[in-house]
Simulated assay, not measured.
Amino acid sequence: MTSVPGSSDPQAPVDDLVACPGCDLLHHRRHLLIGELARCERCGDILQSNKFDSVDRTLAAVLASIVLLLVSLCLPFLSLSRAGINSTISVLDAVSSLWFSDMLWLGTLTLAFIVLLPLTRLLLLAWVLGRIRFQRKIRRGMRMAFRWSIRMEPWAMADIFMVGVVVSLVKVSTLANLHTGLAFWSLLLLVGLSIFINLTLCKDTIWAVLTYKD
């Protein structure tokens, strides 16, 4: 991407100003070409971006992520065998085990951060990007939905869950034979797609459409 410096202009209208997320310096909002970035003239942080084909690429990744998340809930996550005894567990089995082991709050938090919040964020993004992609009428609720999808991003912790699983696998593998199921690989792909979504989603482009197309 091409980087261009931001331009500070204290006399500009409020709607035409953008604050630097790093140092809060106000800049005049610029019109960017596809592939350009606007950076703060003081600290160099990114102010604006205009990413290539952001809506189509992000929407495709969001829809694929929804499918992978649902698949990870329906299929076996891990299977364990030792001394002729086999056991298979899914993500929902792990949550229910916490519920029935007097750890209701931990099970609820696990379900929320691994399933409910990521799924809600993906559904909100799919709704907003889908209506933009197919040129549907912009509704007021779309702005709120997109705002909440951004706010929920740090709380969708499927990646943290997978790091914990990998650490546990290393420890348990010395005690029994472990086999990863399709749900494990689905969640692993979901983590990769989450990173891709963050890279391709151009928030400035989406906000511009939601703001100026009523």
Results as ranks from 00 to 15, higher is better:
Leu117Asp: 02
Ser72Ala: 15
Ala64Trp: 06
Ala158Tyr: 08
Asp53Tyr: 03
Phe100Pro: 00
Cys23Thr: 07
Ala156Pro: 06
Leu32Lys: 00
Lys171Met: 13
Leu32Ile: 00
Gln48Ser: 12
Ser8Ile: 07
Leu119Asp: 04
Leu182Lys: 13
Leu119Asn: 05
Asp9Ala: 05
Leu201Lys: 07
Ser72His: 01
Leu33Pro: 00
Pro118Ser: 07
Ile132Glu: 02
Phe146Gly: 03
His31Tyr: 01
Leu33Cys: 01
Ala126Ile: 03
Val163Trp: 07
Ser8Pro: 07
Met162Pro: 03
His27Val: 01
Ala145Val: 01
Val18Gly: 08
Leu189Ile: 01
Val71Ile: 11
Leu37Arg: 10
Arg131Ile: 03
Leu70Val: 09
Leu33Glu: 05
Val170Phe: 10
Pro118Ile: 03
Val14Arg: 11
Leu119Gln: 08
Thr58Leu: 03
Lys137Met: 09
Val170Asn: 04
Glu153Trp: 11
Trp185Pro: 00
Leu25His: 08
Leu123Ala: 09
Asp9Cys: 04
Arg131Val: 04
Ala19Tyr: 02
Gly181Glu: 08
Leu116Gly: 05
Leu119Ser: 06
Ile195Lys: 12
Glu41Lys: 07
Ser87Val: 12
Thr174Ile: 06
Val166Phe: 03
Phe100Gly: 06
Ile132Phe: 00
Val165Leu: 01
Gly164Gln: 02
Asn86Ser: 15
Leu187Ser: 01
Phe113Leu: 15
Leu182Cys: 04
Ala60Ile: 06
Lys171Asp: 08
Arg151Ala: 10
Leu26Met: 12
Gly44Ala: 05
Ile132Asp: 02
Met162Tyr: 09
Phe134Gly: 05
Pro118Asp: 06
Ser49Asn: 11
Leu189Glu: 09
Met144Phe: 08
Ser149Lys: 00
Ser173Pro: 07
Ile206Gly: 05
Gly141Arg: 03
His28Lys: 10
Val166Thr: 13
Val191Gly: 04
Ala208Gly: 07
Phe146Ser: 02
Pro13Ala: 14
Leu125Thr: 09
Arg131Pro: 02
Leu129Ala: 10
Ser7Tyr: 07
Asn50Trp: 02
Thr2Ser: 07
Thr58Phe: 01
Leu73Glu: 11
Leu69Thr: 03
Val166His: 05
Leu129Asn: 11
Leu199Ser: 15
Met1Gly: 10
Arg143Pro: 06
Ser90Pro: 01
Val167Gly: 02
Cys74Ser: 14
Arg140Phe: 07
Arg131Asn: 12
Ser49Tyr: 03
Ser65Lys: 02
Arg30Pro: 00
Phe161Ala: 07
Glu41His: 10
Leu190Lys: 00
Trp99Phe: 13
Leu116Met: 13
Asp53Gln: 09
